[in-house]
């Protein structure tokens, strides 16, 4: 039967309309129920989080300020149940990492020790093996924050990923843990590095206060012009006047006029800086 004949024979119309009405109404109800469920879950989680955070504050106080060893905390009946709870461990992990951001010196070291002894590190390392890039990113951020240098090789290898967000996160972590060594492999990088990634790399150097910039000049020798541009920006932003000689050499053998112009501009800016000093 042709479409026209089927249409003329309007038997289909009523079931089609009825079916559609029920389908739209049915899905709307399901979506509505999902919204309600999500809202309830959020309220419940919020409550639970508040409760856990109070316990974590006490726990952190005894570990960081009272010098209580983790072995004693582990056997404490007040904590033993919680430490087995996955959501509690998740909140605990977030708290330890956030706390670490605000502390230096001995307190930071105590937190790092706690992170290792409480095996929170294990879940971070497990995240690195995930197939989901966003989970990997989370793991990388946690390990970098807690200064787990053992994971730096893995991070450098992840930083070669084609997923841009993952790449930026891993490069940032590598810079934090290894300094210039964390980006030196970019010399051989085959693809263009966009401005956003470049700015993230520069920011990582500033944020983590990387003093030793030995090796940045190697990036100037890359065949990838975006890597060269990155190196020039790094030298300019970090005011690395000790690299002036390398920049000068680049102006003489720049791969294109744009790089040559940028190199000259960096040279000029740094020379002015040097004169002012």
């Amino acid at each position: 039967m042709s479409i026209w004949e089927q249409y003329k024979n309007s038997d289909w119309a009523e079931p089609f309309l009825m079916g559609s009405v029920f389908l739209f109404a049915g899905i709307s109800v399901v979506l509505y129920l999902l919204i309600i469920k999500s809202r309830n879950r959020k309220i419940k989680q919020e409550k639970l989080r508040n409760e856990y955070e109070q316990i974590i504050v006490e726990l952190m106080y005894s570990v960081v300020f009272m010098d209580a060893p983790f072995s004693s905390v582990k056997d404490d009946p007040n904590y033993v149940m919680f430490l087995k709870n996955a959501y509690f461990r998740e909140v605990l992990s977030e708290s330890v990492i956030n706390l670490h951001k605000n502390y230096d010196g001995v307190y930071a070291l105590k937190l790092e020790q706690f992170y290792k002894e409480s095996e929170l590190i294990k879940s971070s390392l497990k995240k690195l093996k995930s197939h989901k890039w966003e989970v990997k990113c989370k793991g990388i951020t946690e390990l970098a924050e807690m200064n787990i240098t053992d994971a730096s090789e893995k991070m450098i290898s992840i930083s070669k990923s084609k997923n841009k967000v993952l790449k930026i996160t891993a490069i940032n972590a590598s810079i934090r843990l290894e300094g210039v060594k964390g980006i030196i492999h970019l010399t051989e990088h085959a693809y263009p590095i966009d401005d956003w990634t470049q700015l993230n790399i520069i920011n990582a150097f500033k944020k983590h206060d990387i003093g030793d910039t030995q090796g940045v000049e190697y990036l100037l020798e890359s065949k990838n012009t975006t890597v060269v541009a990155l190196a020039l920006k790094l030298i300019k932003e970090l005011k690395l006047t000790q690299k002036l000689h390398h920049v000068k050499l680049l102006t003489e053998r720049a791969p294109n006029t744009l790089i040559q112009y940028e190199a000259q501009s960096v040279l000029k800016a740094l020379t002015v800086n040097l004169t002012n000093e």
Partner: peptide, 19 residues
């Protein structure tokens, strides 16, 4: 039926936006 069809679709689409 046709009016109901259009009406439920409009509500359904708004619920998707809320979702």
């Amino acid at each position: 039926l046709l009016v109901l069809f259009v009406y439920t679709f409009a509500v359904f689409f708004s619920v998707i936006a809320l979702f």
